[in-house]
Simulated assay, not measured.
Amino acid sequence: MAFAVPALYALWIRPRLLTWGATRDESTSVYPGDELVAEADSSSTMATTLPAPPEAVWAWLVQMGGDRGGWYSWDRLDHYGEPSAERIVPQWQDLEEGQHLLTAPDGRSWFTVAVLEPNRTLVLRADLKLPSGRSYDIRTGSLPRAHMDGIWGFHLRPAPGDRTRLVVRTRGVSRPRPLTRPFDLLLGEPAHFVMQTRQFHNLRTRVGAQA
């Protein structure tokens, strides 16, 4: 019996957390930005259908950021308690590859816009030192002894009825693996599921109200 719960989680619950809402084709497809973490230790593909066309959904995604419109998830956990935007803000509609989107109030950690295809693909990259969680520039070529690097990709595809299929792909690699692997399993993956499903819910509410 002691082995039943871990086995149930590993064989049935965890695969569903990592592919929540996604079809088999969506889960196995290759998306722009996947190549940025070619040998990933962890990955997930989650998806939902939103009641608006891709260009309407894009307007909400492109204004994400801790110093912009927030992340549309649990704001107490990822936006310093400030509510995420509930309207389209014109000054946040400009986004460029290489731009930093802050994730911490002190400005020492951020996502970098890695891939930008308007109305279709937005891939954010995070390269973090551990255990501080501070960002570093991977282009310097020197990796910290302990680090976590990954992508958070948003892929929009038209769906019947003037709707959008939003597929969210994550890929990550972290070192030293004997220490980061338990963190991924026990905290990282469940936390991502909670935050991502909340974001799906809030995006659906926002784009639905706008439509």
Rank of each mutant, 00 (worst) to 15 (best):
M1A: 15
A2Y: 11
A2S: 13
A2E: 12
V5M: 14
P6F: 03
R14Y: 05
P15G: 02
L17F: 09
T19F: 00
W20V: 13
A22N: 01
A22Y: 02
T23A: 04
R24L: 15
T28M: 13
S29D: 12
S29R: 15
S29Y: 04
D34E: 03
E35Q: 12
T45Q: 06
M46Y: 00
A47E: 08
T48M: 04
L50K: 06
L50Y: 03
L50Q: 06
P53A: 06
E55Y: 09
A56R: 15
A56G: 12
W58I: 01
L61E: 09
L61P: 05
Q63N: 06
M64S: 14
G69K: 11
W71A: 08
D75L: 10
R76I: 13
H79S: 11
A85Y: 10
A85C: 13
P90M: 11
Q91N: 10
Q91T: 07
D94L: 12
L95M: 07
Q99T: 04
L102K: 10
L102T: 08
L102W: 00
R108E: 05
F111R: 07
T112K: 09
V113S: 01
E117S: 14
P118F: 12
L122Y: 04
V123D: 04
A126L: 03
L128W: 09
P131S: 02
G133H: 07
S135A: 14
S135M: 06
S135Y: 06
Y136V: 00
Y136L: 00
Y136A: 00
D137S: 03
R139F: 00
G141L: 03
S142E: 14
P144H: 03
P144A: 04
R145H: 09
A146S: 11
A146I: 00
M148F: 15
G150F: 05
W152T: 12
H155V: 10
L156V: 10
R157P: 00
P158S: 04
P158Q: 05
P158N: 02
P158C: 03
D162F: 01
R165K: 05
R165Y: 02
L166A: 04
V167H: 07
R169H: 03
T170N: 13
T170I: 09
R171F: 07
G172M: 10
S174K: 01
R175M: 11
P176H: 01
L179H: 07
D184Q: 15
L186T: 08
L187C: 14
G188M: 13
G188T: 13
P190T: 08
A191L: 15
A191T: 11
A191P: 00
M195C: 01
Q196M: 15
T197L: 09
T197G: 08
T197K: 11
R198D: 00
F200I: 01
T205V: 15
R206W: 08
R206N: 06
G208H: 05
A209M: 11
